[in-house]
């Protein structure tokens, strides 16, 4: 059964790799004509090959083969309804307050119960402030969350960080209620 699963997994990985090559871009919709071919040769479509999409585990009838993880759902399913809670921040701050630490304490328990999980901590900002500044600020938020989790005994090698600045607002509104949602360290499951 396990061997069967692994072979399925291999097929899944190969398929996802094969499918991950993006299409050649068409001309932009608003451009009346493309560049002359000899002016700018067709640039590389991708700077580097995109990372392989994490394979989704094959759910078998047993449903218990995801050893080391208490959660048998797929990564995508877990991320859609995640037990990992965001940590929110004050305006222009990368300091963890009591509420943020409470969320991180709970996340640490989830990570201890799912000892194979590797997660990515995304730093986010609200729309105020410049994009460049927010990329640095959001990086510090992600790292603050990571450092605290490490202090709680979670292995640093299980915690990746990335800063999305204000590129990915969770709430697209333009008031404090929205901004509060967007000033966060957000947790996504990357591998299990």
């Amino acid at each position: 059964m396990r061997r069967f699963f692994i072979s399925l997994l291999t097929v899944a990985v190969a398929t996802s790799l094969a499918c991950s090559k993006p299409k050649t871009p068409g001309p932009a919709s608003t451009g009346p004509q493309p560049f002359p071919a000899s002016a700018i040769p067709r640039p590389a479509d991708v700077p580097v090959p995109p990372p392989p999409i994490p394979p989704e585990p094959v759910i078998t009838s047993g449903g218990d083969i995801t050893s080391g993880s208490a959660d048998s759902r797929s990564i995508a399913e877990i991320n859609k309804n995640s037990p990992l809670k965001p940590a929110f921040f004050a305006y222009d701050s990368d300091t963890l307050d009591d509420s943020a630490r409470k969320s991180l304490n709970e996340n640490a328990q989830v990570l201890k119960s799912n000892a194979t999980w590797i997660i990515t901590i995304e730093g986010h900002c609200d729309e105020r402030g410049t994009a460049e500044y927010n990329l640095a600020l959001a990086d510090r938020r992600a790292l603050a969350a990571k450092s605290y989790l490490v202090s709680l005994g979670i292995g640093a090698d299980r915690l990746k960080t990335v800063s999305y600045g204000k590129e990915f607002p969770f709430d697209t509104g333009h008031d404090e209620d929205s901004w509060l949602q967007n000033r966060r360290a957000h947790f996504t499951l990357t591998a299990k």
Partner: peptide, 25 residues
């Protein structure tokens, strides 16, 4: 978000990247 290049007057806008990821600045 992808990168685009255009003439200085906005004509000939063409996509440069196509990696379905964030491409900034």
């Amino acid at each position: 978000k992808e990168l685009y290049i255009s003439d200085y007057d906005g004509f000939n806008q063409q996509r440069l990247t196509a990696n379905r990821n964030l491409n900034l600045m």
